[in-house]
Design a protein around this nucleic acid. Sequence first.
RNA 1: GCCCACGUGGCUCAGUGGUAGAGCGCUUCCUUGGUAAGGAAGAGGUCACCGGUUCAAUCCCGGUCGUGGGCUCCA
Length: 617
Amino acid sequence: MPVIEKQSKNDPLYKMRHSLAHVMAQAVVKHYPGTLLGFGPPVDDGFYYDFLFPEGQGISDEDLPAIEKEMRKIIDADQEFVREDLGAAAALARIEQMQEPHKLEYARELIEQGGFDSLSFYTNGPFVDMCEGPHVETTKALPKDGFKLHAVAGAYWRGDERNVMLSRIYAYAFENRKKVKAHIRAVEEAKKRDHRKLGKELSIFVIDDEVGKGLPLWLPNGAIIRQELEALARETEFRYGYYPVATPHITKDSLYWTSGHLPLYEQVMYPPMRIHEDAEAGGATAETGDGEAEKYYLKPMNCPHHHVVYRAEPRSYRDLPLRLAEYGTVYRFERSGQLQGLTRVRGMGMNDAHLYVTPDQLLDELKAVMELHREYYDLFGFGDYYMRLSLWDPDDPKRGAKYIDQPEDWEFSQKIVQQALEEMDLDYTIEPGEAAFYGPKIDVQFRTVTGREFTVSTNQLDFAQPARFALTYTDRDGEEKTPYCIHRAPLGTHERFIAFLIEHYGGAFPTWLAPVQAIVIPISDDQTAYAEKVRDTLRGDMIRAEVDSSDASMGKKVRTHITRKVPVLLIVGGREAEENTVTVRRYGVQEQKSMDLGTMADMLRAEISERRHVRDW
RNA sequence: GCCCACGUGGCUCAGUGGUAGAGCGCUUCCUUGGUAAGGAAGAGGUCACCGGUUCAAUCCCGGUCGUGGGCUCCA
């Protein structure tokens, strides 16, 4: 079964990082007496530890070198890691004596709710920590130059913002100095592919204060990429039997009461416009205190509107599955600290669709949705992603508040979603308790070049919303029945998806997506007319071609357009003009070839229309 | 929103308690050049914004806004 397994704790790197975290904590407590401890686990590229500094004290990047120095002293001191197991009562007494309130809280939870009857402690030198281990034998086994403290960040105790905010110190940690250096270099290297940097260099988008944070403006280059993606979706969805719909950006509050987004989702929605139709003034005026005003919200999701489209006409089982698609623009009031380039924005164009299906169509439709993902991701050449199956948690004491509490619906829908994944032979992880409130989810996870994981596509099997909207179809037995709804968004949102495309290709887009597909470079002004003819020939084939008629030198022009990652450079001099040919220099290819203009145009057109992501001529 | 850092011409970044500089880009001129920077001249900044300290602030202090790294949440 292709379920992805989590990493082992006995991994030597895990032990080393975990032990270094203890060493760092010891160093921090020595420098800042009275500091309290939080958690300090290993992470993918090192470790962190959370601290609560004494009142009035804080820490910043400038303090890190001193802590590193202290850590090296501890490593040199060759402290032994000694494990001790204490029964519940003794363990609690021990922690109380340590005066570590966070550790105490966690220990109580482990004992009272986790059923632990003993807890383990690790001591190295003067430092004791409640910890399940394992650790290295002595600090001497730790690489003195294999770590680098690199960031200070705030982190709420237990990740809950109602709790106190701790100071987290992050460190990179690897087997040796060379590997740390290599990692830091890789991080620097990755920054060059960051979509924010390339987005600026390649004039794809801007985010301007005066428009609003999280509200990107698409420059012509970016708008072209959006159009190409929409064309791809339109064609693909047509082949898969979807119908397009279009719905408005703003909507009265009542729709969101029906859908259940109000009040549950309200904190993520822009506040409503309150509108009072003013007959005398012949327009609308904003109202504040008065209950007469109608409230309109910017839509945070497309599903309620699609449900209304479904409801607009009587439906028969013969109409199902009914697949309604829209690149709908939605707005979500994300907290300012969450915003990040194009990956986290407040206004976004979503590749959305809702599939209304009968129970016996569910499996095939889910599989078709998975196939659609595969088709798209193969087209783009994506390999580094995984599916995440989010289920409900029947053991959650608060499940009634978190989920529609209909166990038999959960059992049925989870089983069928997992079956679809299995039958499509996809790799996936299982995340209990992460489901949507109305059904299980399949998210598709990608990583940015800077290592952050994001959901690109989210898909849900919804057994609850159709009933809220009283959606029905007449079945063959004449009964009115409620359909299931599948939410799917394989291309996610334009914003996030294009961010990934920029990083995935390092800005060197496949020709079909490239804002400028071909640049014609005349060698001298004498060839301007021929260059324009070449350009116009290509434009006749709907190829985005331009002539560089600036008075820069040849070498300069070539350099400029390579820097802008234009897929095809066409050099035309006297010889080409005479022979009706072009000299082709492709991005990333050193050697060039001379080709007949018509032949070149045919090959380029084919590459674009087939949306090839490899350069094979 | 909260913690930490940062905010100098379009971009990348120097710099100083006495009101600013480079490279790239841009404009103009010369150059008509066969594949990753031809040459010259020029324009362009109330040093994010507001307030405070000071004889004097871009530089010091406070606040605001924005950006980046985290926490949480999510497409």
